[in-house]
């Protein structure tokens, strides 16, 4: 009998971290190594509520730990965020395309993330740090709503403390105690040291942020071909069979979610596509 792609596997939650008020990281330790590529996602299930696609935010070089970071924004994610250590996390996957970590070898890498968009890029960052010698400069530009909405704050501190990573964090609206940058993430691009000719940019955030990041990168001398981003739509299957995630002809769960920007740029401009 063919393997049934709709049958999920439960894993016991061994660790839970509250990233922000509404965002949590859940860690499970699968019985067999969970092999995935950075940027891929799983369908996570909440009993009686349904499934949602969630990016894997862990280290691809550590397949004994499967890590997801999710924000409670709806019926399913609310229930997932409420799961505690010891409970089952029910998983199907991994699905979809991945960040171009092979193509980016020998290049500078510019990571631009907004909000929870740092989650799928975290696995890429961890991959690059694990194979640091394969890559040139690494810059991480991260924008969040407020200083209380920064995900992976410990990671950002650690990365920012390294001599071989440039980290720039900015928030839309800082609390009075915030001494960091305030403003949109596109504003820090031209403050960042990278060679546009030999850089690969990987971008994840709301679509407006990604389009405008690509615009700012173009202004900084990069070509759209050097920019990769990841898209999100309603998904019920993860394997291109439910039809929900279509963007024009793209089946985002199957052909994406990570795309070279030129392939989806014309589609992202069309309303209600």
């Amino acid at each position: 009998m063919t393997h049934d792609p709709f049958i999920p596997t439960p894993h016991r939650i061994v660790e839970k971290r509250q990233e922000t008020l509404d965002t949590v990281t859940l860690v499970v330790e699968p019985e067999t190594p969970f092999v995935f590529a950075p940027g891929q996602f799983n369908m996570l299930y909440a009993l009686g509520r349904g499934e949602v696609p969630i990016s894997i935010s862990g280290d691809p070089g550590e397949p004994s730990r499967l890590v997801h970071t999710l924000r409670a924004v709806g019926l399913v994610t609310d229930a997932l965020a409420a799961l505690e250590v010891g409970a089952s996390l029910v998983v199907r996957g991994p699905f979809g395309s991945s960040w171009p970590v092979e193509e980016a070898k020998g290049h500078d890498v510019l990571i631009v993330a907004g909000g929870i968009g740092l989650a799928p890029l975290r696995s890429t960052i961890l991959h690059i740090l694990r194979h640091r010698e394969d890559y040139g400069r690494l810059a991480i530009l991260y924008g969040a709503r407020t200083d209380h909405d920064l995900c992976f704050a410990d990671d950002l501190h650690e990365w920012g403390g390294r001599f071989d990573v440039e980290v720039r964090v900015t928030v839309d609206r800082g609390s009075p105690a915030w001494r960091g940058r305030q403003g949109v993430v596109t504003a820090v691009i031209d403050k960042t040291d990278f060679d546009p000719a030999r850089t690969v940019a990987m971008v994840c955030g709301p679509e407006v942020m990604m389009r405008h990041t690509a615009r700012a990168l173009r202004a900084a001398g990069m070509k759209d071909e050097q920019v990769y981003l990841t898209l999100e739509r309603n998904m019920k299957c993860g394997i291109g069979q439910c039809g929900h995630c279509q963007l024009g002809g793209e089946l985002i769960c199957r052909d994406g979610p990570v795309y070279p920007y030129p392939r989806v740029a014309p589609l992202m401009r069309i309303r209600e596509l």
């Binding site: 009686g48 509520r49 019920k236 299957c237």
Partner: peptide, 18 residues
Amino acid sequence: FCLTVEEEPSYDGQASTR
């Protein structure tokens, strides 16, 4: 071919059929 997957929870909330 488009499909959706919906939940049919048991009366006591202890099980759900997809």
